[in-house]
Design a protein around this nucleic acid. Structure first.
Lengths: 293, 293
DNA sequence: ATACATTATGCTCAATAGGAGCATAATGTT
DNA sequence: AACATTATGCTCCTATTGAGCATAATGTAT
């Protein structure tokens, strides 16, 4: 058998996330149907620069910190030229005046467990999954672990695993076997998979590096910081313990200013301690996110 | 300015790791100078299958579990065609009778902190680094944090960060400014960077998933398991506490057999509990690896 | 002005996890 | 029989963390 080196095009895909009034949002194009993407060009001196170029071209947005996610490269039988899709994650504090921002949880409503409504959705999913798994022991086990059913705990980082399980079960709209879906917004191609990968990665990352601080204002109250963590992880946490941990970590420093114009006792404003920030990214910051049922 | 879609070749690089008599080893080609690699071909139906194909072709080895690491794509000014290099990590229990296995710590001797000798090497590195950093505050800080100097703790997962720092300081042989090196074995191109990435990833992974069990025999003593963790992380740990933690995690089950032919009281053999192994990979296993000075 | 709602912040208590080391058990060697 | 050597069980102490009570400081309704 002869072997032929494949010539390919490399496509660069970006998941740019921001926090807008308590919801994580991503920058999309084509009315929310896909992520900004474009081909690697000879003019791009590196992959990262290619990503920056395309996001700026398509949305006018200049990226800050960028991180590689995953490279997909399955061959499509019909096509002659090979496509390698390299995905990136980026964060930004201010969403600017761009259009095209969409909430994470429009695409993954079951990932937001902060509201009462989420319980109902999870019940629906549970019923549908159990019906799909029928009485196959192995499938049932996967459902239990992945969705935290039956006393198993919910792992907020398993976004991709949950999406893939729902795909297999024909419960998401991209699935070829899907009839109705779960009221979520779908995406073209595998872009929702890529978004899931980005969510997983970010949820993992906020636990042990101080990346949250790239998403909140320069000065913030501890409640705002907590709510940012909650929005990203999709779960509520204990207020007093959160304060304690953040303060013990020496990650923030007090200012002498307070929040104004709200109900109740005004909250003190804090800022991220930039003097040891460089270090934290390496040595770890351990923001708390405990476990729950 | 005109833009041109770049045609590229995709190269697949594999870091295959095994444990051989208490040392992590990788499979190499060209007398240890590089990692097995090859171009993505039209016949490969997926990137993973391409990796498997090349490793088998070059070394006769069939891969088990494979995981993607990172994709490199910087353009080389001189070349017309673009090269995208996609790297993978794989593990295997038995090294077979292949040649080409080399110890991790030949390439990264400073990453092995189990022996007394490592202290001397670290002293040498510390002196050289401090000389390089001179009195620049920022550089000194990086050195302290990255190499755990001056009371900072050693982060065993920061293999790549340490390599890059040494590269900048001209202390590793790949560096253009390097005069002598540190007695390590170099590699061609950026293959030592890729190895560093794999080591970082594996060291991170053994903490919260039960991957170690893919590197030890089916039946093992708790000391063997501990020494496997120590070999991979490059640091020694407390024996009794290790036992306690492993047993409390419900990861292993006793057999009724014992080790034979060694000094001292014979140790009981254990095996990995496969009944909930699937779950552990998702819910986490938390093997201990504490911190040390 | 006073009572009350609301949010921030300080503090306690109990359970658990993790680091360090002592004590005992079971083998081989001299 | 004494001793070296390794395995295994157990205790003590400390740090971390989950849960909730108590107090402080503001705005709002009466």
């Amino acid at each position: 058998m002869n072997h032929h080196v494949a010539t390919c095009r490399a496509e660069l895909v970006a998941v740019l996330t921001t926090l807008q009034s308590g919801t994580p949002e991503i920058l999309t194009v084509q009315n929310g149907a896909c992520l900004p993407a474009g081909a690697l060009e000879t003019e791009h001196s590196s992959l990262q620069r290619g990503v920056r170029h395309w996001v700026e071209e398509l949305t006018g947005f200049r990226l800050g910190h960028v991180e590689q996610l995953y490279t997909f490269g399955d061959s499509v039988p019909a096509e002659t030229e090979r496509l390698v899709r390299i995905s990136y994650m980026a964060l930004t504090r201010d969403s600017g005046d761009q259009a095209g921002w969409r909430g994470w949880y429009q695409y993954f409503p079951w990932e937001d467990r902060r509201t009462e409504g989420s319980v109902a959705l999870l019940k629906t999913i549970e019923r549908a999954l159990l019906e799909w798994a029928a009485h196959e022991e192995e499938k049932l086990d996967r459902c239990r672990v992945t969705f935290g059913l039956n006393g198993e705990s919910w792992n907020d980082e398993a976004v991709l695993e949950r999406y893939e399980l729902l795909w297999e079960a024909g419960l998401v709209q991209e699935s070829p076997y899907c009839s109705a879906g779960l009221g979520e917004r779908p995406m073209l191609w595998d872009h929702r998979r890529i978004l899931a990968t980005a969510m997983s990665r970010l949820r993992a990352k906020i636990r042990y590096t101080p990346v949250v601080f790239e998403l909140v204002p320069e000065e913030f109250t501890l409640l705002q910081l907590q709510q940012a963590m909650e929005a990203l992880s999709g779960r509520l946490m204990h207020k007093q313990n959160f304060r304690r941990l953040v303060q013990n970590q020496d990650l923030v420093s007090e200012t002498d200013r307070y929040e104004s114009g709200v109900q109740g006792r005004p909250a003190r404003l804090y800022r991220f301690r930039t003097d040891n920030s460089e270090n934290c990214y390496l040595t770890g910051a351990k923001l708390p996110l405990g476990t729950f049922s």
